[in-house]
Computed example of a mutant assay.
Amino acid sequence: MFRHYLRLVLFALGLLLGVQVPGFINDYSQRIEAHWQESEQGLKGFRETAKNFFKGDLEALVAHYQASDDPVFNSDADSLNLLLDRSRLLDGEWRAMQGPWYAKAWHVASAADPELLEETYQGYRYQVLLAPEVIAWGIACALLLAWLVECLLLGAGWTLGVGRKHKIIQHEQRHWR
Protein backbone atom coordinates (compact mmCIF):
# COMPACT_ATOMS: atom_id res chain seq x y z
CA MET A 1 0.00 0.00 0.00
CA PHE A 2 2.89 2.35 0.76
CA ARG A 3 4.14 1.83 -2.79
CA HIS A 4 0.84 3.06 -4.19
CA TYR A 5 0.96 6.22 -2.10
CA LEU A 6 4.57 6.76 -3.10
CA ARG A 7 3.53 6.51 -6.73
CA LEU A 8 0.79 9.07 -6.18
CA VAL A 9 3.17 11.45 -4.42
CA LEU A 10 5.75 11.10 -7.19
CA PHE A 11 3.08 11.65 -9.81
CA ALA A 12 1.80 14.78 -8.03
CA LEU A 13 5.36 16.10 -7.63
CA GLY A 14 6.10 15.48 -11.30
CA LEU A 15 2.83 17.16 -12.25
CA LEU A 16 3.62 20.25 -10.17
CA LEU A 17 7.13 20.45 -11.59
CA GLY A 18 5.96 19.85 -15.13
CA VAL A 19 3.40 22.66 -15.10
CA GLN A 20 6.21 25.09 -14.21
CA VAL A 21 8.11 24.46 -17.45
CA PRO A 22 5.82 26.41 -19.83
CA GLY A 23 5.53 29.26 -17.33
CA PHE A 24 9.29 29.55 -17.04
CA ILE A 25 9.73 29.42 -20.81
CA ASN A 26 7.06 32.11 -21.17
CA ASP A 27 8.78 34.31 -18.57
CA TYR A 28 12.13 33.87 -20.33
CA SER A 29 10.53 34.80 -23.65
CA GLN A 30 8.92 37.91 -22.16
CA ARG A 31 12.18 38.95 -20.51
CA ILE A 32 14.01 38.58 -23.85
CA GLU A 33 11.40 40.66 -25.63
CA ALA A 34 11.52 43.41 -22.98
CA HIS A 35 15.32 43.61 -23.11
CA TRP A 36 15.23 43.52 -26.91
CA GLN A 37 12.77 46.42 -27.07
CA GLU A 38 14.89 48.37 -24.58
CA SER A 39 17.98 47.70 -26.69
CA GLU A 40 16.24 48.87 -29.84
CA GLN A 41 15.12 52.02 -28.04
CA GLY A 42 18.72 52.68 -26.97
CA LEU A 43 19.92 52.38 -30.56
CA LYS A 44 17.16 54.55 -32.01
CA GLY A 45 19.18 57.78 -32.04
CA PHE A 46 22.24 56.07 -33.47
CA ARG A 47 20.08 54.48 -36.17
CA GLU A 48 18.81 57.94 -37.15
CA THR A 49 22.36 59.29 -37.35
CA ALA A 50 23.47 56.28 -39.41
CA LYS A 51 20.42 56.70 -41.66
CA ASN A 52 21.18 60.38 -42.28
CA PHE A 53 24.93 60.10 -42.87
CA PHE A 54 25.83 56.45 -43.62
CA LYS A 55 22.79 55.03 -45.47
CA GLY A 56 21.65 53.31 -42.28
CA ASP A 57 24.90 51.41 -41.74
CA LEU A 58 25.62 51.39 -38.01
CA GLU A 59 28.98 49.69 -38.57
CA ALA A 60 30.04 52.66 -40.73
CA LEU A 61 29.00 55.00 -37.93
CA VAL A 62 31.12 53.03 -35.45
CA ALA A 63 34.07 53.11 -37.87
CA HIS A 64 33.65 56.87 -38.26
CA TYR A 65 33.65 57.34 -34.49
CA GLN A 66 36.73 55.10 -34.12
CA ALA A 67 38.61 57.00 -36.84
CA SER A 68 38.06 60.31 -35.09
CA ASP A 69 40.90 61.95 -33.14
CA ASP A 70 38.38 63.07 -30.54
CA PRO A 71 38.54 60.79 -27.43
CA VAL A 72 34.83 61.41 -26.82
CA PHE A 73 33.96 59.91 -30.22
CA ASN A 74 36.33 56.97 -29.54
CA SER A 75 34.55 56.35 -26.25
CA ASP A 76 31.18 56.59 -27.98
CA ALA A 77 32.37 54.03 -30.56
CA ASP A 78 33.10 51.56 -27.75
CA SER A 79 29.72 52.24 -26.15
CA LEU A 80 27.92 51.87 -29.46
CA ASN A 81 29.76 48.59 -30.14
CA LEU A 82 28.54 47.25 -26.78
CA LEU A 83 24.99 48.30 -27.61
CA LEU A 84 25.20 46.65 -31.02
CA ASP A 85 26.59 43.41 -29.55
CA ARG A 86 23.81 43.35 -26.97
CA SER A 87 21.23 44.04 -29.65
CA ARG A 88 22.54 41.16 -31.79
CA LEU A 89 22.47 38.79 -28.80
CA LEU A 90 18.92 39.78 -27.88
CA ASP A 91 17.78 39.59 -31.49
CA GLY A 92 19.12 36.04 -31.75
CA GLU A 93 17.44 35.05 -28.49
CA TRP A 94 14.19 36.69 -29.58
CA ARG A 95 14.25 34.81 -32.90
CA ALA A 96 14.92 31.52 -31.10
CA MET A 97 11.88 32.11 -28.91
CA GLN A 98 9.55 32.61 -31.90
CA GLY A 99 9.51 28.93 -32.90
CA PRO A 100 7.23 26.09 -31.84
CA TRP A 101 7.00 24.99 -28.19
CA TYR A 102 9.55 22.20 -28.51
CA ALA A 103 12.11 24.53 -30.13
CA LYS A 104 11.61 27.06 -27.34
CA ALA A 105 11.99 24.37 -24.69
CA TRP A 106 15.15 23.03 -26.33
CA HIS A 107 16.63 26.51 -26.65
CA VAL A 108 15.97 27.36 -22.99
CA ALA A 109 17.36 23.99 -21.87
CA SER A 110 20.46 23.98 -24.05
CA ALA A 111 21.38 27.32 -25.58
CA ALA A 112 19.81 30.12 -23.54
CA ASP A 113 21.95 33.07 -22.52
CA PRO A 114 23.17 32.22 -18.98
CA GLU A 115 22.84 35.78 -17.70
CA LEU A 116 19.27 36.14 -18.94
CA LEU A 117 18.40 32.64 -17.75
CA GLU A 118 19.65 33.46 -14.24
CA GLU A 119 17.75 36.76 -14.30
CA THR A 120 14.59 34.91 -15.28
CA TYR A 121 15.11 32.30 -12.58
CA GLN A 122 15.64 34.99 -9.92
CA GLY A 123 12.42 36.76 -10.94
CA TYR A 124 10.35 33.63 -11.53
CA ARG A 125 7.33 33.03 -9.32
CA TYR A 126 5.75 29.60 -9.33
CA GLN A 127 2.50 29.54 -11.19
CA VAL A 128 -0.05 27.08 -12.48
CA LEU A 129 -1.40 28.08 -15.86
CA LEU A 130 -4.46 26.26 -17.17
CA ALA A 131 -3.66 25.85 -20.82
CA PRO A 132 -3.53 22.63 -22.85
CA GLU A 133 0.25 22.72 -23.32
CA VAL A 134 0.77 23.29 -19.58
CA ILE A 135 -1.41 20.32 -18.73
CA ALA A 136 0.45 18.19 -21.28
CA TRP A 137 3.82 19.21 -19.80
CA GLY A 138 2.56 18.42 -16.32
CA ILE A 139 1.26 14.98 -17.17
CA ALA A 140 4.34 14.10 -19.23
CA CYS A 141 6.72 15.15 -16.44
CA ALA A 142 4.60 13.37 -13.83
CA LEU A 143 4.61 10.09 -15.76
CA LEU A 144 8.31 10.37 -16.54
CA LEU A 145 9.30 11.09 -12.93
CA ALA A 146 7.09 8.32 -11.53
CA TRP A 147 8.41 5.83 -14.10
CA LEU A 148 12.08 6.76 -13.54
CA VAL A 149 11.86 6.54 -9.75
CA GLU A 150 9.95 3.27 -9.86
CA CYS A 151 12.50 1.79 -12.27
CA LEU A 152 15.35 2.92 -10.01
CA LEU A 153 13.71 1.50 -6.89
CA LEU A 154 12.75 -1.78 -8.55
CA GLY A 155 16.24 -2.11 -10.02
CA ALA A 156 17.84 -1.44 -6.65
CA GLY A 157 15.48 -3.89 -4.97
CA TRP A 158 16.15 -6.57 -7.53
CA THR A 159 19.91 -6.03 -7.18
CA LEU A 160 19.69 -6.34 -3.40
CA GLY A 161 17.39 -9.36 -3.60
CA VAL A 162 14.33 -7.71 -2.05
CA GLY A 163 11.11 -9.42 -3.06
CA ARG A 164 12.72 -12.49 -4.62
CA LYS A 165 11.39 -15.86 -3.55
CA HIS A 166 14.11 -18.30 -2.68
CA LYS A 167 13.79 -21.85 -3.92
CA ILE A 168 13.81 -24.60 -1.37
CA ILE A 169 16.17 -27.37 -2.20
CA GLN A 170 14.36 -30.67 -2.77
CA HIS A 171 16.80 -32.54 -0.55
CA GLU A 172 15.96 -30.37 2.46
CA GLN A 173 12.24 -30.78 1.81
CA ARG A 174 12.52 -34.57 1.91
CA HIS A 175 14.65 -34.47 5.03
CA TRP A 176 11.92 -32.79 7.10
CA ARG A 177 9.15 -35.20 6.05
Rank of each mutant, 00 (worst) to 15 (best):
D70C: 05
L80D: 01
Q20K: 05
G45F: 06
L61F: 03
W101E: 09
W147V: 12
Q37K: 14
T120H: 00
F24I: 04
E133N: 10
L17H: 07
L8I: 12
I25R: 01
E40N: 15
I135L: 09
L143Q: 03
K51N: 13
C141K: 05
K167T: 15
M97Y: 00
E59T: 10
L90S: 01
V162E: 14
G123W: 01
L10E: 08
E40Y: 11
D78A: 13
Q127M: 05
G155I: 09
W36E: 03
W101I: 12
L84H: 02
V19R: 02
V9I: 15
A131Q: 10
L17M: 10
E38H: 12
L17T: 08
A50V: 05
A67Q: 08
D85C: 01
E115V: 06
H64A: 13
K44Q: 15
Q37E: 11
F2V: 15
L8H: 10
A105N: 03
L17Y: 07
L143Y: 03
Y28I: 01
P100V: 10
R31Y: 09
Y121L: 04
L130A: 08
L84K: 04
K167Q: 15
G23T: 04
P132K: 02
A63R: 10
R164Q: 13
V134L: 05
G56S: 05
P100D: 12
